[in-house]
Design a protein around this nucleic acid. Sequence first.
RNA 1: GGGUCGUUAGCUCAAUCGGUAGAGCAGUUGACUUUUAAUCAAUUGGUUCGGGGUUCGAGUCCCCGACGGCCUACCA
Length: 492
Amino acid sequence: MSTEEQTVSDNQLRQVRIEKLNTLREAGMDPFRANASQTHTSKEAISLYQDELPDEEQKTVSVAGRIVAFRVMGKATFLKLFDRDGKIQCYVRRDEIGEEEYARFKKLDLGDFIGVTGSLFRTKSEEITVRATSYVLVTKTLRPLPEKWHGLSDEDQIYRQRYLDLIVNEESRNRFALRSKIIQEIRKFLWQRDFMEVETPVLQSIPGGASARPFNTHMNALSCDFTLRIALELYLKRLLVGGVERVFELGRVFRNEGVSRRHNPEFTMLEVYQAYTDFRGMMELVKSLILHLCQEALGTTTVLRYDGTEIDLANGWSERRYKDLIIEATECPDWFELSKEEKLKKTTEMGIEVDPELEDFEVTNNVFEKRIEPTLIQPTFVTHLPRQLIPLAKLSPEDETTVEVFELCINGQEIAPAYSEQNDPLAQRKMFEEQAGEEIQKVDNDFLDALEHGMPPSGGMGIGIDRLVILLTGAANIRETILFPPIRPTEG
RNA sequence: GGGUCGUUAGCUCAAUCGGUAGAGCAGUUGACUUUUAAUCAAUUGGUUCGGGGUUCGAGUCCCCGACGGCCUACCA
């Protein structure tokens, strides 16, 4: 037992509870029982109450949970139990459970887990309550709960001790329940459309499908270095080659880059690939998917941003070309005829800082990321992006400087990119080699070999699940959607 | 990485110009058999994030460090 790091006061609170625990043991009781009876959850129990029946004929239930409120009023006590469905009030009277039991009962602490058996009734103030005929201590707690009214607000502690946040902050609890529901409904939606869910390697020797710095690790058995995957794309496309015509993976990817309100080094990605369709097919798919989530998980098609702005996910959709957006934002109709130097001059005039070493198309993309993306609050498909930005997509037949892709932007951030996937192995190889020339990046020859065996024409799409959850839950921050975000370890 | 703000009791927060570290909740003791942040009375609890400095005197001023928030940078 390590007590040395705790303060004196903390130890006192803890010591009192340890003494209570010892007293129970001496009386022959187990303060950490192996099981408890829970015939109904709080919500189920409350729904069983029947207004037309007198108290004597109401149902008997056994509920179990953590004590989150405890009001002793002499010979009777009201308490609130907290379980997975919510809270339920219980009423315990000395004359109903016995004098000796009641004396022990009064020594319970906030935070302890108990089971209560009794029948339902409605109190004077109309709250449906379990009138205890018996109770049992299930698990004794040694540490106090955070303050009952203000809860827990220290952000550091919320992340380090998320369990406390979940106990006392209902908003947080609901957000994670909704995240779970969203993921469940994504699977349902894709299963209904005959997609197969797969799992591909997290440990990869050549991280591909995106351009990001990877995390490095080492595999002893093969005695070689691996990286954690930065995208799912290249393995899922191998499956298209293998005849899996509809495939998706929902999994964690890792990028060894900055942390911000919108970025977390490990995040959850959905990638979907469908043969015999293109990016237009993906447009229909992603729109239907988001509407499905609205209906099945949210129960509404309008969501509120943390700042109160309304987003209309049913009727707000539009489609814009990348070039048109750039020309509008720069108020410069001949933007794409300008030299790089002229573009740099313009961006400086617009107050956008751009590294002059960047390529021409990157300067333009800075305008997109800094001046356009943040303004795309309502769902917008941005199409016809420059080919250099996306090496894994097919060229647009009508304008070969652009590719057949969209980036779906909602809430001022990119939610889902989708492509008509490049399946010309020679064009793909050329693109990779050009890239590898510029950056220190290895060409995934194994993937190119696969393409040479033939990949059917396909549409592919990716969704950053964490950002989708930010959108649908109105969270202010990506960390509000991640149960245990990375934090610096405390010393010792 | 840079800028900036912050760290006081288990939790939420005060503390005037540099002058005795406080409140509410939780805990402890007592009263109370329909309470709702129960109420009433009494009471315990502090390395003021750590280290150094200035000063008769530092939670408060200065320096260094740790941790965190926000902004920013990096990031297909």
